[in-house]
Amino acid sequence: MNTALSRLNAVFAFSLSVLASLTFLCFLSTAFVDKTSSPSISVHPEVILRGAHDFGLDLKDLATLKFDLGANLSSLFDWNTKQLFVLVTAHYRTRNNVRVTVVDVLPVTHPLPQPRNQVVLWDRIIRRGDSAILDLRSAATKYNFFDDGRGLKGNQNMTLQVSWNVVPIAGRLPLIWSSQYSLPFPNSY
């Protein structure tokens, strides 16, 4: 504290400690806030299936679909929210891929289908200040919906789910799943 440099050092270190404490308090103030919401999703009836090549010799199932998505996620923005990452995911079971995960062993407390394939069809980042109201009509999927075999044709346990990461300034990064939308797939290409 006897020289200007040592005082500068002390002020800087002290202010960083205060900033860290405030950030922790900010995390505490939002740690128990409910991050759920209830978006609605529906798919137009015409799901188009075809076989396509995906880096290989075999034909793989490729689905094309259009969906509506309505959601008001404004309530998820509080002072500890940096951005939201919203995904639309398809979950389905095939004979090839029965995956046993921790989720299947432990008692399930959230609405995830159990043994599953998960394919992300669409996503969007909603930053702080952007409109958090999603109103998609007949939106095409952002990513190709490929199966790793012929598992899509006639698949009856297909479900779509909306989920979102609430990206905080400080704290946990929760991934929250909405309810499922059931979507039986057609039996023909």
């Binding site: 405030l22 950030t23 308090l25 900010c26 103030s29 923005f77 002072w79 500890n80 300034i169």
Partner: peptide, 11 residues
């Protein structure tokens, strides 16, 4: 600043 930021809901 903490009170003000909480009031504005902007950290």
């Amino acid at each position: 600043g903490f009170i003000w930021g909480y009031f504005c809901q902007q950290y």
